[in-house]
Design a protein around this nucleic acid. Structure first.
Length: 975
DNA sequence: AAGTCTTCGTA
DNA sequence: GTACGAAGACTTC
């Protein structure tokens, strides 16, 4: 860059965020390898095309007069010195990206464009400095990047420019993203933090709340200074406690606009590339179409120019190019291997990159409302051509067992989707137009769609398809085969985010879909979807199918690339129809039993309530923890008060139990009242409202992607927390019954998590104890305290049992002390003894924590991945919490995997044995069946067998699994 | 009306 | 000490 010319007003300065561009192009553009030697060059090519476009295709008034590509030089920057954890958790770049870093610098030089980097500063700081200088003399600055960290620089004369979307990011866009003007962006970032760069921020405050606070107080300093004024207690305490962390965060996110730069801005003057350099480079890289364009533009003869030598570093990667997918069994030993991101991998020649899917706009006007048979037939034909279709159903209720269909949406290509209304009705009373809603009869739609929806050669893609499966089943359609984007996301990034469609769309497609409440309203004024006008319904519904299709294209490729296809195909997808069946079956609940119990609980509750008022000497709301706390620790002045997180008196059962044990009658009464109140409100009164009027049974809903470990969750109602521990509570279980002539069978795994632990941590004593069928807690006590199992003090055994559970939960002395009501020192010494006797467990726990810290995730023996992005949190107690969770996840998760495998196989196994029994419920380590009296023994045996062999053939556990099965008229007796 | 806190039911 | 969901009280809009 020999040319100099002082910058002047009206110049156009382009500053390209080179490092940002590389990563974005790598993920955005189709994978591309150089023909001759397999060198990956996709990002380099995207970069070259972008540069050429900037230099040649910009509109006259926007052409750069000055241009530089700015790179990050070293890992070590001033930010790391302020805060060592900054960007601590960055995975290594993918292996096929590494050689491209050097190539992109060489490409920059071939373009005769300035290439800038400087030690101790990030590219963003250099960009900030140059942008400030340029804007000061009146030049226009465009920063080629869409990185949010650069948005703080936006002001008059400085904008960001996203070349891939061809979109400028100015003040309005920043305002939309951060909720504040660009000059306040760093204040919001300081509060919200950034998990990717490991900027801590203030817990509990995200961009939304941050923006609101900054808007109200004007600045971060003002906010921190006046934090005490904040009304919301939690927010106030958090801001006071983490004020310093917020200040550090602000330092980390604030770009340095005064870097003593090595290269002066005026040396970035744009100059024509030299034909020999640029064409030579294109030739070497085999960028033929770019080469033709360059040759034409520069009037050069490409044939006469020789390829120029390029230097390639980091290719091929050590250990070869392709790595076969590791076996799904990733025992702790495998977990000690390097993070997957650092392993050499080749991206398959595959379809849709995130950026390409983002680039296809969501155009609501392109969506079609299908109201004729002809139109529907055209869609069916299109589906047959494609071999797949994304679909979604719109209904009148969240409960698939009660919902009526309003319409069905389909998508066959990104951007191409339709909505088929079938059950829309006029809004009540307000619509005087008298116009009939134009829609096809349901029967016609069913007869046209049924053949494709049931065609085994056509994939049906959905988001949470279990719901739609039930809807279609009630229309007489058995949808298969299926793909589910929610579950794909769950297999890929459990623990990183939720898996709802709106969230996935925003994260992966950068597009915020129409919110349901925008079309249907919310609260009292909400309408059911069948009342939504067709145009709006089409926009909303077709978009859902469109988005689902795009997500599927993305996830399909990622599952393969990240070796999670097996997890998805064995633990997730096949469970969908199985759970749909279970939900459809439902369980019989005896309304009369619940009504009687409710009456009894109400009566004794009222009596106890009266007694508490007498003991307290006044009437108050016994259900209010606040009033209760005031009475106990204020008016009565009792000792032993503990405060909750928000500073209120705690009145939980531990506190009340303590008081009761000191002879405080009042506390005992409150405890008794609480139990009865809980049983009544949550169970005896709530359950009957869930009895489906058509089937007479209760149909829970299982969510497959809401836990971080692979467990299911049950909602509406939750049938996984029906009481069992107390005598009174257990009576509720007697209301869960089988019809006359049938019985309920309960089959549960015995100690499955400890068995999994014995296997993964490979503990000889545990393995032997399980192999010999011993009492595992007694064995533990015997090992620890050196007492014989025979005639053991039950108290000793109880302590050992608590320790065993503690181990599974990622034990801490604090927790164990609480559990056993002993001192922390005593608990600590128990743990020490335990680890001395079982050193393998300590090794396992340390290894798991290490993996979690280094990779951000842990895996079960079946390959299910659980992410813990916050495990590098600067907050010690949060970090310790994540460590415990990461110890627990492979154990709880493997147990969840095992029962999922059993459930997946169960229907076919029952059918093959000619048994009509039906699986009704799952409660983490227990399955509930309903079977006619005649086949009970056979079902028990078969179920036990399937459950005990569930890990095979993938894993042969080093310990046997044991399943106990019992049959009875009701759940209480069967359990 | 919607969101948060506290408590408590399960594995 | 892990993982959940639901209800009622209370807070905020």
């Amino acid at each position: 860059m020999s040319q100099h010319r002082p910058l002047k007003s009206g110049d156009h300065v382009y500053l390209i965020d080179g490092s940002g561009y590389i990563f974005r192009a790598y993920h955005a553009l189709p994978p591309l390898t150089r023909k001759s030697d397999g060198l990956p060059v996709g990002a380099v090519q995207g970069f070259c095309n972008m540069l050429w476009k900037l230099l040649k295709d910009m509109k006259a008034g926007e052409k750069p007069t000055h241009l530089a590509v700015v790179f990050d030089k070293s890992e070590q920057t001033f930010r790391k010195r302020i805060y060592p954890d900054y960007k601590a958790h960055r995975p290594d770049p993918p292996a096929d990206l590494i050689p491209q870093f050097g190539l992109i610098r060489q490409a920059t030089r071939a373009f005769n464009v300035a290439c800038v980097e400087q030690s101790d500063f990030e590219a963003d700081d250099l960009i900030a400095t140059y942008a400030r200088e340029a804007a000061a003399v009146g030049a226009t600055v465009r920063i080629v990047s869409s990185d949010k960290d650069l948005m703080q620089l936006v002001r008059k004369g400085i904008a960001l420019y996203d070349t891939m979307k061809d979109k400028e990011i100015g003040e309005p866009e920043v305002l939309e993203k951060f909720g504040v003007a660009p000059d306040k962006v760093v204040d919001v970032q300081a509060l919200a933090g950034d998990s990717v760069d490991n900027v801590p921020g203030v817990p509990g405050i995200g961009v939304k709340t941050g923006a609101q606070l900054i808007t109200e107080y004007g600045s971060l300093e003002e906010l921190l200074a006046r934090a005490a004024e904040i009304k919301q207690p939690k927010r106030r305490e958090s801001l006071i406690q983490f004020a310093e962390q917020a200040r550090i965060s602000k330092l980390l996110v604030t770009l340095d606009q005064n870097v003593p730069v090595d290269h002066k801005l005026d040396t970035f003057l744009v100059d024509e590339p030299r034909a020999s350099d640029l064409i030579g480079f294109c030739k070497t890289m085999e960028f033929s179409s770019l080469m033709r364009r360059v040759a034409a533009d520069l009037s050069a003869d490409a044939a006469a120019i020789d390829p120029i030598p390029v230097e390639v570093k980091g290719w091929p990667p050590e250990g070869g190019v392709a790595t076969p997918a590791p076996a799904p069994a990733a025992a702790p030993k495998a977990e000690k291997a390097k993070p997957a991101a650092a392993q050499p991998e080749v991206r398959p020649q595959a379809s849709a990159s995130s950026e390409r899917l983002r680039a296809i706009a969501v155009k609501y006007d392109d969506y079609e409302t299908v109201t004729t048979k002809d139109a529907l037939e055209r869609w069916v034909e299109r589906i047959r051509q494609q071999g797949f279709v994304a679909l979604d159903s719109e209904t009148t209720s969240l409960d698939p067992m009660q919902a009526n269909v309003a319409g069905i949406s389909l998508a066959t290509d990104p951007g191409q989707a339709c909505y088929i209304p079938v059950g829309h009705r006029a809004g009540d009373g307000l619509d005087f137009s008298g116009a009939e809603i134009k829609q096809l009869p349901v029967a016609d739609v069913i007869s046209l769609l049924k053949p494709v929806l049931e065609d085994p050669s056509i994939l049906k893609i959905g988001q949470n398809l279990k719901y739609d499966l039930l809807i279609f089943r009630r229309l007489g359609i058995e949808v298969a085969p299926i793909e589910d984007t929610m579950l794909m996301s769950y297999a890929l990034e459990s623990g990183l985010n939720g898996h709802g469609m709106d969230e996935l769309s925003e994260k992966h497609l950068g597009h915020k879909p129409i919110a349901y409440k925008e079309v249907a309203g919310s609260g009292k004024s909400a309408i059911t979807f069948d009342k939504v006008p067709l145009d709006r319904a089409t926009h909303y519904a077709a978009e859902d199918a469109d988005i689902t299709l795009r997500l599927w294209m993305l996830f399909k490729e990622r599952l393969a690339r990240e070796h999670k296809t097996t997890v998805y195909q064995t633990l997730e997808r096949p469970l969908v129809p199985v759970l749909a069946n279970m939900e459809c079956e439902g369980i019989l609940v005896d309304r009369a039993v619940l009504a009687r119990l409710s009456g009894e609980f109400a009566a004794s509750g009222a009596e106890i309530e009266k007694q508490t008022y007498e003991l307290a000497g006044e009437r108050f709301n016994i259900g209010s923890p606040k009033q209760l706390g005031d009475i106990l620790f204020g008016r009565m002045g009792l000792p032993g008060g503990r405060k909750t997180a928000t500073g209120a008196w705690s009145t939980d059962s531990d506190v009340l139990e303590d008081l009761a044990n000191q002879g405080i009658e009042f506390a005992r009464k409150v405890l008794d009242w609480r139990q009865l109140s809980k049983l009544r409100s949550t169970y005896t009164d709530a359950l009957p409202t869930f009895i489906n009027p058509e089937t007479g049974r209760v149909h829970t809903s299982y969510s497959m992607a809401s836990t971080s470990t692979g467990r299911l969750a049950s909602t509406d109602p939750n049938l996984q927390n029906i009481p069992v521990r107390t005598e009174e509570g257990r009576r509720i279980r007697t209301a869960f019954i089988a019809p006359k002539g049938s019985k309920l069978i309960s089959a549960d795994y015995s100690q499955i998590e400890l068995r999994v632990l014995a296997h993964v941590a490979d503990i000889p004593q545990l393995r032997k104890a399980f192999a010999d069928g011993l009492d595992i807690h007694a064995m533990t006590a015997s090992e620890m305290f050196g007492v014989p199992v025979k005639g053991m003090d039950p108290l000793i055994r109880r302590q050992a049992k608590a320790i065993n559970f503690g181990i599974i939960y990622g034990i801490s002395a604090f927790g164990l002390a609480n559990q056993l009501s002993i001192s922390r020192e005593e608990a600590g010494s128990y743990i020490k003894t335990y680890f001395q006797r079982f050193p393998g467990i300590r090794d396992y726990m340390e290894a798991t924590k290490k993996t979690a810290r280094e990779t951000g995730y842990v895996e079960t023996i079946f390959g299910r991945r659980c992410h813990f992005p916050r495990i590098t949190s600067p907050n010690a107690s949060e970090r310790a919490f994540m460590e415990r969770a990461s110890i627990n996840a492979p154990i709880q998760g493997a147990a969840a995997d095992i029962i999922r495998r059993a459930m997946t196989r169960m229907p076919a196994a029952l059918a093959k044995a000619g048994l009509g029994a039906r699986m009704l419920l799952q409660v983490h380590d227990e399955l509930i069946f309903e079977a006619v009296d005649a086949e009970i023994e056979a079902v028990k045996e078969l179920v036990k067998n399937v459950m005990e062999k569930a890990p095979e053939p993938v894993i042969k556990l080093a310990v046997p699994l044991q399943v106990d099965a019992r049959a009875a008229d009701n759940w209480e007796a069967a359990h």
